[in-house]
C-alpha cells in the first residue's frame, strides 16, 4: 500500500462472533446470520462466495449491504430470503431457521423480475394468491388495490410490464413485496437502474411505507450507492471483495429521523460517515494510483 492511503485505520467492529450478537439497541432480532458460508459448485471447482459471516439485524432496523460488484451481496441476501442454502452456518428469520422462501420475507429482485405476460395487477395478484393462504379472493383483490394505490400505480394496473418505465416497474416490484405484508423486506439493488430523480422519489416513498407500518418492518438492502445507504439506513455493512467475502466493517448511521435529503448532506456526521464508507470502498486505490 502506498504512503497516502485512503484506508481508515480501525475497522474492526462487531463481527467474527460465533453467534450473531443482538443488534444494538433493538429489543428483538429480526434476522440472525450465524457463521454463514456459501460455496458454489462450478465447472472449475468449488467457489466460495461468502465465508463465515455473522450479522444480527434488529426488528424495524434498516441495514444496507455495500461492497464491490461480485463480492457476494446478493448471495448473502439470498441466504436470508431462502433462495440460496448456506453451505455451512444458519440463518434465523423471525425466530425460525430459514430453509426456503416464505411470506414473512418479501423480496425485491435486482432486476424487478415481473412476469412480462401479466398485467401490473395480475403480477401482484398472482404473487399474493400464491404466498398468502386463508384469504378470500375479495380480500386478496383489496390487497392488490391498496398496494397499487400506495405506489401510485392504480391507473396503470392494466398495463403490461413492457409498457412501464424502469421506475414504475420498480414500484410494482416494491408493491408486490409489500402486498404480502412481510415483516422483513429484502431489497437487492432496488434502485440501481434508475435516474437520480426517480431514485430520490422512491427513497422517500420507501421510508413513507416503512413509517406507515410503525417502523416495524426490517429492511435489508443491497446498494452501490453510498448516499442512498446513509440516507436510508441505521447501519451500513461493508463487505470485502470476494472470493470468500466476509464483513469488512459495520458503520452506524446515528442520524435522527425523519431525515431530510437536502439537509443531511451538510451534516458533519453524515460527511464523516460518507468519507469513512468511501474509504472502505476505495482503499485499494491510493492517491498515487489515481
Amino acid at each position: 500500500m502506498s504512503a497516502i492511503s485512503l484506508s481508515p485505520e480501525n475497522h474492526t467492529e462487531t463481527f467474527h462472533h460465533h453467534h450473531a450478537a443482538p443488534a444494538n439497541g433493538y429489543a428483538t432480532n429480526s434476522i440472525e446470520i450465524n457463521d454463514v458460508s456459501v460455496r458454489f459448485k462450478t465447472p472449475k471447482g468449488v467457489f466460495t462466495a461468502v465465508k463465515d459471516i455473522s450479522l444480527a439485524v434488529g426488528r424495524g432496523e434498516i441495514v444496507s449491504l455495500i461492497g464491490h460488484s461480485g463480492c457476494g451481496k446478493s448471495t448473502l441476501m439470498n441466504t436470508i430470503s431462502g433462495m440460496v442454502k448456506p453451505s455451512s452456518g444458519s440463518v434465523i428469520a423471525n425466530g425460525n431457521l430459514v430453509t426456503k422462501p416464505g411470506p414473512d420475507r418479501g423480496i425485491v429482485f435486482q432486476n424487478y423480475s415481473l412476469l412480462p405476460w401479466l398485467s401490473v395487477y395480475q403480477n401482484i395478484y398472482q404473487a399474493i394468491d400464491a404466498a398468502i393462504h386463508g384469504k378470500t379472493a375479495t380480500e386478496k383483490k383489496a390487497l392488490v388495490e391498496n398496494n397499487l394505490k400506495m405506489v401510485k400505480l392504480w391507473e396503470h394496473k392494466d398495463k403490461l410490464p413492457g409498457q412501464l418505465s424502469g421506475g414504475m416497474k420498480q414500484r410494482v416490484a416494491i408493491a408486490r413485496a409489500f402486498a404480502i405484508n412481510p415483516s422483513i423486506l429484502l431489497l437487492d439493488e432496488p434502485f440501481g437502474a434508475l435516474d437520480a430523480l426517480t431514485k430520490s422519489n422512491l427513497h422517500v416513498e420507501l421510508l413513507k411505507l416503512w413509517n406507515l407500518d410503525n417502523r416495524e418492518k426490517t429492511i435489508v438492502m443491497v446498494t452501490h450507492d453510498i448516499e442512498e445507504a446513509i440516507f436510508l439506513s441505521d447501519r451500513v455493512v461493508v463487505m470485502n471483495d470476494g472470493p470468500a467475502a466476509s464483513i469488512k466493517a459495520i458503520v452506524d448511521v446515528p442520524l435522527p429521523r425523519p431525515r431530510n435529503k437536502k439537509e443531511i448532506v451538510h451534516d458533519p456526521v453524515y460527511m464523516g460517515i460518507h468519507d469513512k464508507l468511501l474509504g472502505f470502498l476505495v482503499d485499494k486505490l491510493s492517491i498515487n494510483d489515481l
Binding site: M83, K100, P101, S113
Partner: peptide
C-alpha cells in the same frame, strides 16, 4: 432464472407455475 425466482420466492404451486410461467413463456 428471474421467472423461476419469482415462482420460488412467492411459493407458486405447480399449477400456477405451469399456467403463469411455463406456458406463457
Amino acid at each position: 432464472q428471474d421467472h423461476k425466482n419469482v415462482s420460488k420466492a412467492f411459493g407458486f404451486s405447480k399449477w400456477k407455475y405451469l399456467t403463469k410461467i411455463l406456458l406463457p413463456f
